[in-house]
Structures are given as C-alpha cells and as structure tokens.
C-alpha cells in the first residue's frame, strides 16, 4: 500500500530541480521584458561617489583590480562605473592587479572604457547636467597599468615605499620613469585614495598592510559573498565606503548617471529574490506543518 502524502509532505520532498527551473524561468522572463526599477542609493556607496567626484583634475587614484573571471559578474560593472566616472573628470588612475587572472580583467576594462569615452556624452547627476567632450585616453598620461605580481601583502607594503620597487616597468614593459603621469609619483603619498575591487582575501591585506600601515583613504568594491564581513571596517572608519555586489555597482551607476550591466540586472535580482523568499516561506510552512502532523500522530 502506498503511503498517502498530503501537500505539506510533498512540499518537503519537492525535487529541488523544480525550484531551479522556476527560478530560471522567472530570471529569463524578467530579463527579456525590458522595464526599469528604482535604485535607492546607500550612504556607503554615496561616500565613495562623493569622494571621487570631489577630486580635482589630474589627481591620482589607485584602482586595484583584484578579481578573477569568476567574480567578473559583480565586480566588472563597478570597475566600468568608477573608471569611467574618474576619466570623465580627468582624474588619472594607477591600476594594479594582485590577483593572477586580474590583468586580463583590467586590460579589457581599460580598452572598453577608452572606446566608450571617445564620443561626446551628457550626464545628469547631483542635479547638474555635465557635458563630457569625447577624448582619447592615453596610456602613461591618463593611466598607468602596473600589472600583476604575486604575494600581494608584500607588494602592498612595497608600493608604500616606491611603486618602482615591485614594478620597475608597467604591464606593457615601459619603465615607470618614462611615463609622463608617473613623474614625481613615488608611493601612496601622491595618491588621493585606493579603490580595491576584490573577490578574495586581498582586501584583508589592503586593510591591514595598506590602509593600516600607510593611512590612505581606502574604498572597497566587494562580491556579495564577502560584503557583510567588511561592514565592521566601515564602522571603525578603516574603510571609507563599500560597494556590495551587483547592487553596489548599480547604485554607483545610478549616482554617476551611467547605466550599465549592473542596473540592467537589477530587475532580475528583484524578482529572483521574490522567488527565493517565496520558496523559503513555503519550505518553512511545510517543515512546521509536517512536524505538527508528526507530533499529532504520536511519532
């Protein structure tokens, strides 16, 4: 005789592949249907945007592209949003990559953003219209890409003494002293802030060996998995701002009036979260009801 299963038993034994299928259908449907959802910005992202937006022309920001392709989905949109914002303002950038697959990420971002900045654009943020005249982004003038070196903690400490200690030449083989923007740039003292976009433990090294040792303003762009671990550093003032996952990237895109892949994905995020919350609620109802039935039955 087959055992009779009520709806709650069925909920508890539901094949998880139905959950995956339902989630995929919702994600694809919400992605295909093009609509916008409002993005509310948070103070931790606003503080990064406001700091970078206040920098004068020709200031230098160090951006650490410390992520591999497995974190590209969340961190690449942040790179695009931050770098484009800085180059629009003619702020110079030193790129490093202390993750071994990071140079390819940085190289791709530099090429794409350089291309997108060749055309005139109008941005509207902080209630003001900003007209950007398209221009050529030049290696050695607008940016320097130092590339990758292993043992990130030692590299971060070394850059505090002199960038040339670990990177006598840039990623493309040009000696740093031959690059116009690196004239007189010795170490972190000449850098307005460091923005670390990271998908791993390198962030810890930037906090302990970088900000803790050399006391520069440090801003983080982190994957969703990591972000809750780093909020205590925001509270203690060791970190000046945090962008968390795709949501953080979407908020920066919203603030800079530069919609990209992050904003494009937020409608999918919203409905995917509704589905997951729905399944969590159903799973809990199923769990408590089967437990109640079991207790009633004396098992």
């Amino acid at each position: 005789m087959t055992e009779h299963k009520n709806i709650f038993d069925k909920m508890m034994t539901l094949d998880r592949r139905w959950v995956f299928l339902f989630l995929i259908i919702v994600c694809v449907a919400t992605y295909v249907v093009d609509f916008e959802i409002p993005i509310n910005t948070e103070p931790e992202v606003e503080s990064i945007f406001n700091f970078l937006d206040s920098l004068p022309e020709n200031d230098i920001v160090l951006i650490a592209i410390d992520y591999d392709p497995n974190n590209l989905a969340e961190l690449h949109p942040m790179t695009y949003a931050v770098v484009e914002h800085l180059w629009r303002k003619k702020v110079k950038i030193i790129f490093t990559s202390l993750s071994q697959l990071g140079p390819a990420m940085a190289d791709q971002a530099i090429r794409d953003i350089s291309d997108s900045l060749k055309v005139d654009k109008t941005y509207n943020y902080n209630g003001v219209e900003h007209n950007f005249k398209g221009r050529e982004i030049v290696n050695g003038v607008d940016y320097t890409f130092l590339g990758f070196k292993p043992y990130y903690a030692l590299i971060i400490l070394g850059m505090g003494q002199d960038f040339r200690l670990n990177f006598p030449s840039d990623y493309y083989g040009t000696p740093l002293d031959d690059l116009p923007m690196m004239q007189g740039v010795i170490n972190y003292d000449q850098v307005a802030c460091v923005v670390d976009l990271s998908g791993g433990n390198i962030t810890d090294a930037w906090i302990s060996y970088g900000q803790g040792r050399f006391n520069f303003p440090l801003m983080l762009g982190l994957t969703g998995v990591m972000v809750s671990q780093y909020y205590p550093f925001l509270g203690s003032g060791q970190v000046s701002g945090i962008m968390g996952g795709l949501l953080g990237a979407a908020q920066y895109e919203e603030l800079a009036d530069n919609p990209g892949r992050a904003k494009d994905g937020m409608r999918v995020q919203l409905y995917a979260h509704y589905v997951i919350i729905l399944f969590i609620i159903l799973g809990n109802i199923g769990y408590f009801m089967t437990r109640r039935n079991r207790l009633k039955g004396g098992n």
Binding site: V28, A73, V225, S228, I276
Partner: peptide, 26 residues
C-alpha cells in the same frame, strides 16, 4: 541575523552570476 545577512548577499551574488551569463548570451 549576521548569517542571514551573509546568506542574502550570497543569494544576490549567485543570481548576479546567472544574470551575467544571460547578458553574455544575449
């Protein structure tokens, strides 16, 4: 509550990966 916040962010991270693959497929 701390673990719950981490879980929520992890869900967002995983969905982000899927969104990126959809964007590339498009």
């Amino acid at each position: 509550i701390g673990f719950g916040a981490s879980f929520g962010y992890t869900v967002m991270a995983r969905v982000s990966l899927f969104i990126n693959r959809m964007q590339d497929t498009k």
